[in-house]
Design a protein around this nucleic acid. Structure first.
Ligand SMILES: O=c1ccn([C@H]2C[C@H](O)[C@@H](COP(=O)(O)OP(=O)(O)OP(=O)(O)O)O2)c(=O)[nH]1
Ligand SMILES: [Mg+2]
Length: 616
DNA sequence: TAGCAGTCATC
DNA sequence: GATGAC
DNA sequence: GCTA
């Protein structure tokens, strides 16, 4: 129940961008408040503390909180509505008719749109930005030769145009229950259309001198969306008079990334110069020289993880990764000059650490009751920052409190709680080896043929760490044949010998992989350990070991590099990928076969790193 | 100002 | 879709 | 929080 107060804003009058709304949501929700965002209103429920927070945050935004606070609501009503999930359903919060909405589309760039002047409406409307390959102009996909067919087609196109315009009008008139993003999704659904066809005229593009233009490897350039409503042609017997209606244009025309990924060369050249910034290229330093700084920054990272401050998490993680790759110690602020990932704020913090050995910020935050509680609660497997925070606001602050509230935990969390003391201990390498041996023996016994299945111990074990947080074992069938039920049988056989608890059972994914997560121990007296078993088909082995060996930050770095170079890298494979504005995926090609880790490094143009050097 | 890795399981 | 995990 |  929310005994506290609540207030709401008509979004129309508050200049809150997406980013700001996200910041605000995070802030409020991580402090026990609630925030609901409707298409036109922003509602906040919380205590006095929440109000204070909002005031501060608004001040940071340079906004006067009091001016915008619209009204207080009856807390009982809000409690009821939240409990009944009414608010989520009420798109417009019609229960507050006194709120006057004023459209300010330009001021609230809610969606990834650009503003386009629509002549027919005599208004500027936001239109989602899209890019697509432009062919050299010779191929006209509406190349319908038969006149009658053409007229039929054009008639339909006309109707379609009218519909779209009507919808746009509705949006603008607020008759439509609008959610522009959704609207575009709906339009996307089955439709493809040309902006020109909607009489939406583009603003003049800025003139780029010919010398600065880049037309891509194959003299083609993505400039604008070219869309066709596919089902508009349904029922028309077009014979062969229409080119390319069968396939979406993107996949039909962009066969070879290298050839058809426009601007890729320039992009790759650009990132090549910054290759050193990627820790996957630099690799971990043989001996880490900046442990003191790293330890302190990691504390801050942990705090921000608990606070769910995604942006800062990323920033600190990158900075830490970079320091781990640095082969020399930082001695003075001179050393910090021009270091990537280390900006003004982090630089200042590093200097403070060098001078005093610690951070006042950490001291301040670490001691706060809420952070203490969340750190404590997230020790349990299955409880993350959000769950921990909700527990905290229910007054559950320690593991002891959790034990009294077992009904609030799911099965896995209960196991996690029961074994928390065991699971947070790291595994000595010898014991890890023993676990691996047990699994390997069972694999051979089960398959009946020595070496038919290959098992690889990955994770920190493969990176030659002295202790491991858990066991990560990757299994593949060397002859590439069917592995139906193998993992399940393996687990059943290991139940008496190693495994004690199951967390998730194997299930085929769309990529033909299976994952088991569980807990086991080498003897009845031994400590319980987390054990992950993964079964991947042989074709995916290269990418799978690469992924499962990590470290997590190393993976992210490598995947970012792949992204910047026109690929997508995952545990299943390496794919050529074309991205448009805002890194939106436009096209994903066929998987590039990589049976070995080395294949991935070669294709990405990165130096091979032995596992040991991947501990960034 | 937007994006920051990519995927899977569970609820 | 949110959360948590690897 | 950093960066294109
Ligand atoms: O967010 C993540 C977490 C993990 N991994 C990969 C890399 C990692 O090496 C592997 C196994 O994960 P685990 O959590 O076991 O990490 P680890 O590197 O083995 O360290 P630890 O010693 O804590 O087990 O899975 C990721 O790609 N992303
Ligand atoms: Mg591990």
């Amino acid at each position: 129940m929310f005994k506290d107060m609540s207030f709401m804003f008509p979004l129309a009058t508050v200049n809150l961008t997406n980013t700001r709304i996200r910041t605000l949501t995070n802030l409020i929700e991580s402090n026990g408040g609630q925030m609901k965002l409707g298409p036109d209103t922003l509602m906040i429920v919380g205590s006095d503390a929440t109000v204070e927070l909002c005031q501060k945050q608004f001040a940071k935004f340079n906004l006067d909180f009091e001016q915008y606070r619209y009204q207080f609501l009856n807390p009982d009503w809000v409690s009821q509505s939240l409990l009944n999930k009414k608010l989520q359903e009420q798109k417009k919060f019609q229960l507050f008719p006194e709120v006057v909405f004023q459209p300010v589309l330009e001021e609230v760039p809610e969606f990834k749109t650009k503003l386009v002047y629509v002549e027919a409406l005599a208004k500027t409307v936001p239109v989602r930005e899209e890019v697509v390959e432009q062919d050299d102009g010779d191929i006209n996909i509406y190349n319908i030769k038969d006149n009658e067919l053409r007229m039929k087609y054009e008639k339909r196109m006309e109707e379609f145009r009218r519909d779209i315009l009507k919808e746009y009008k509705q949006i603008l008139d607020y008759e439509y229950d609008y959610d522009l993003d959704n609207f575009h999704n709906q339009v996307d659904d089955g439709y493809e259309y040309l902006l020109e066809d909607l009489s939406i005229l583009k603003k003049e593009e800025p003139q780029i001198p010919e010398s600065e233009k880049f037309y891509g490897d194959d003299d083609c350039q993505i400039t604008e969306t070219r869309k066709v409503k596919f089902d508009i042609l349904d029922g028309l017997d077009l014979g062969k008079s229409v080119v390319n209606v069968e396939q979406p244009i993107l996949s039909a025309q962009l066969k070879e990334t290298k050839q058809f990924n426009p601007g890729l060369k320039r992009k790759q050249q650009f990132w090549e110069a910054k290759k050193g910034y990627f820790v996957c290229e630099a690799g971990a330093a043989q001996k880490c020289q900046n442990n003191e700084i790293i330890e302190e920054l990691e504390k801050l990272l942990k705090i921000y993880t608990n606070e769910k401050d995604k942006g800062r998490c990323i920033a600190y993680r990158k900075a830490i990764g970079f320091l781990k790759a640095l082969p020399y110690p930082i001695k003075s602020s001179e050393d910090l000059k021009d270091m990537p990932t280390i900006g003004d704020k982090i630089k200042k913090k590093i200097i403070e650490i060098m001078q005093t050995g610690k951070l006042t910020k950490v001291q301040k935050l670490e001691g706060q009751e809420k952070n203490v509680a969340i750190s404590e609660l997230t020790r349990v497997w299955g409880i993350g920052p959000t769950t921990a925070a909700t527990f905290y606001f229910k007054g559950i602050k320690t593991l002891e409190d959790l034990k009294k509230n077992l009904h609030l935990l799911n099965r896995n969390q209960q196991v996690g709680l029961q074994l928390v003391k065991d699971l947070e201990q790291r595994i000595p390498r010898e014991e890890a080896t023993l676990i691996f041996e047990i699994v390997k023996r069972e694999i051979d016994d089960l398959s009946g043929v020595q070496g038919l299945f290959k098992a690889t111990a990955c994770g920190s074990y493969r990176r030659e760490k002295e202790t491991c947080g858990d066991m990560d074992i990757l299994i593949t069938r060397c002859d590439g044949k069917n592995t139906e039920d193998f993992l399940l049988n393996l687990i059943t056989r290991l139940e008496g010998k190693l495994l004690t608890h199951h967390l998730t059972m194997p299930k085929r994914t769309e990529h033909d992989c299976e994952t088991y997560m569980g807990i086991g121990r080498v003897s009845n007296q031994a400590v319980h350990r987390r054990i992950d078993l993964k079964l991947y088909p042989k074709e995916q082995y290269g990418c799978a070991v690469l992924y499962f060996t990590g470290s997590d930050h190393y993976n992210r770095s490598m995947r970012l590099w792949a992204q910047k170079n026109g690929y997508t890298l995952s545990d299943h494979g390496l794919y050529p990928t074309q991205r448009g504005a805002h890194n939106k995926k436009l096209w994903k090609g066929e998987v590039i076969p990589c049976e070995e880790e080395m294949d991935v490094y070669k294709i990405l143009g990165l130096k091979y790193k032995p596992p040991k050097e991947r501990s960034v």
